[in-house]
């Protein structure tokens, strides 16, 4: 590991398992998130929020918003490690990041940039961050200018408001085994729902699985921006509504609203940018022509 600094916290090390790889023959996006969550837990410990303290006080720093970029595919058997750091201590949040690397050649595989807020883990209420945690965060604070930081997202960003032309891409309840010790869903299980939704959105554009196989096309997420608007709790009844936000010559943008069926509230609002790639060459290719056939008025960007 070449990325060492007294202000970088080692947060993850492990291997890509076969059962973490999807039909695109690379690690599915949800498993980047589970690794990033492990790394975040190590960062919190460095800020004074040890597991024992979190269990006792039932409060911790949680993602308010999260940007994820996927930079390089990870294949089965790949060795990975992750580090986390604090970029800035702000008035209302702590801006931090997690980088996941291929351990064999130190290639940056995924970047998570996020803002953390201190929350009651039972009801999601946002609280003042304890002074000792803020002091610890200031000691770790560093812009880390030598480490990659994503530029602003190259897409229109979804808004958390009801829109036309969004349709159901997933319906589920939050299972016990999807949650942490406080009954809150693990982030990887949110990302898993967005991953599953992709096929349904592509289907709405007119691209079937058979067509993808015939054309030797894979698809991959490149960039996520997600906002955590309300707690998602054990047994919550959820519906995911999605739509085509935008299209470009080589990229699509999908918009997602995760909605609590009992309250009808949008609990998570997410933008996903992705691409198609040649499954053999592992290189991106232009969007399939079916995307051009989608009427412009159906693109969600027109409602923002």
């Amino acid at each position: 590991m070449s990325h060492t600094s007294s202000k970088l916290i080692a947060g993850y090390r492990g291997t890509v398992d076969t059962w973490e790889c999807d039909q695109m023959k690379h690690m599915n996006v949800q498993f980047y998130s589970s690794r990033a969550s492990a790394s975040l837990a190590h960062l919190l410990n460095a800020l004074g929020l040890s597991p024992a303290r979190i269990r006792e006080e039932r409060r911790a720093l949680k993602y308010r918003d999260l940007r994820i970029q996927y930079m390089a595919e990870m294949h089965v058997g790949a060795q990975m490690y992750g580090v986390s750091g604090v970029r800035a201590v702000k008035e209302d949040s702590i801006q931090a990041f997690t980088h996941l690397y291929n351990a064999v050649d130190d290639t940056l595989s995924s970047v998570s940039e996020f803002n953390l807020v201190y929350q009651d883990l039972d009801n999601g209420e946002i609280l003042n961050t304890p002074l000792d945690v803020l002091e610890a965060a200031k000691k770790l604070e560093d812009p880390h200018e030598d480490l990659y930081c994503p530029a602003p997202i190259k897409s229109v960003v979804m808004a958390a408001k009801k829109m036309e032309h969004m349709f159901e891409t997933s319906r589920s309840a939050v299972d016990v085994w999807e949650c942490d010790a406080f009954g809150n869903i693990e982030i990887s299980n949110i990302i898993a729902r967005f991953s599953d939704a992709a096929s349904h959105i592509m289907g709405s554009v007119g691209i079937t699985r058979a067509m993808q196989r015939e054309r030797n096309l894979g698809s991959a997420a490149l960039d996520y921006y997600t906002e955590f608007l309300r707690p998602i709790r054990m047994a919550d009844s959820l519906v995911l509504k999605s739509g085509l936000l935008d299209r470009r010559p080589k990229n699509f943008a999908f918009g997602h609203h995760l909605i609590n069926c009992d309250t009808d509230e949008i609990v998570n609002c997410t933008t996903v940018i992705g691409c198609y790639f040649d499954m053999t060459a592992r290189k991106s290719v232009p969007l399939p022509p079916e995307y051009s056939s989608v009427p412009d008025e159906k693109l969600l960007k027109n409602q923002l």
């Binding site: 947060g11 090390r13 969550s37 992750g82 085994w177 999807e178 949650c179 010790a181 693990e186």
Partner: peptide
């Protein structure tokens, strides 16, 4: 060598 780093998920308990 460090060979693994992670945390204990609720689903593993």
């Amino acid at each position: 060598f460090e060979t693994f780093r992670g945390h204990v998920l609720n689903s593993k308990c």
